[in-house]
Design a protein around this nucleic acid. Structure first.
Lengths: 144, 144
DNA sequence: TTAATAAAAGATATTTTTATCTTTTATTTT
DNA sequence: AAAATAAAAGATAAAAATATCTTTTATTAA
């Protein structure tokens, strides 16, 4: 469904939202451990998300990643689109470039519904929406 | 959503169902052209689907691929599962192996609905279900 | 029973994705 | 200012997915 890169990205932004909710920053090592990802790989991903303004960071002691007021309100759809592009929301299920309402692939209409639901779902939750349940230990971002 | 291999596979079986509905066989070259795929690559995929009993084939003159009565009734879910496995139906959206009802990832419950709908949708159409609309030129398997 | 046809099988190549390692730059603290 | 910290950037490597090429086997038709 999502690329591995995208899965790491989603887990990371939710983790950062959670850990930096108190105004502090969270380092790359803690993030990597907290979401079970390769440290250097998630570093690259966050670098990319940083350039796109989806996460913020500061170098040096007490530095790390955090989210400003705008970033906290970004939806998971924003994250997915930043990493994987909008193919999952708009592309043809069978990979046909010219597939559209007028020249639909056999699955077109049936798939449309599902894609839309996915987009609505991902568009309706912000990265900080999970803070409470993570605090309460109701959901998890790693094997734990 | 699906791997490229899986997209080719779905297109191919629908194409074969369509072209062999009259009892004839359809060659690999015609299939490759008919679904816009690399010839040797789709050959490999069909070889695999053949071993799994999802398509039938005959070598030699007048040979080619076709579907027996059982294969015609296979659903697209069967094809997807044969190629990509059941990860898309059962796996965690965030790639967490231990994600489950008792240790859910943040997206678990919201995703469940969508995965189920996808499975129901793909499980409710057989590969031959599209023959009529393909004949009528209402849907397409290549740029055309 | 030979030639032609077409898929199966095996080997290799290319591209993309995922992962790692090293060096540089920015920031803070002493 | 110097030392320590931590991300940014750049380079390289490994693995997986996608694609191509060649040889073999089965089948048919002449």
């Amino acid at each position: 469904m999502f690329s591995k890169t995208c899965k790491y990205a989603i887990r990371a932004v939710i983790f950062i939202a959670h850990k930096s909710a108190d105004g502090s920053r969270v380092g790359i090592k803690e993030i990597a451990k907290g979401i079970d990802s390769p440290e250097h790989f998630i570093a690259k991903i966050l670098q990319d998300l940083g350039k796109r303004g989806l996460v913020q960071s500061l170098k040096g002691p007490n530095g790390g990643f955090y989210l400003d007021e705008v970033s906290k309100k970004h939806t998971l759809a924003d994250v997915v689109e930043a990493i994987d592009g909008d193919g999952i929301f708009t592309g043809c299920a069978l990979g046909l470039k010219q597939c559209s309402e007028i020249k639909p692939c056999p699955l077109h209409s049936k798939f449309k519904t599902i894609r839309e639901q996915l987009q609505i779902m991902l568009g309706s939750v912000t990265v900080e929406n999970f803070n409470d349940e993570l605090n309460a230990g109701i959901s998890y971002l790693r094997r734990n």
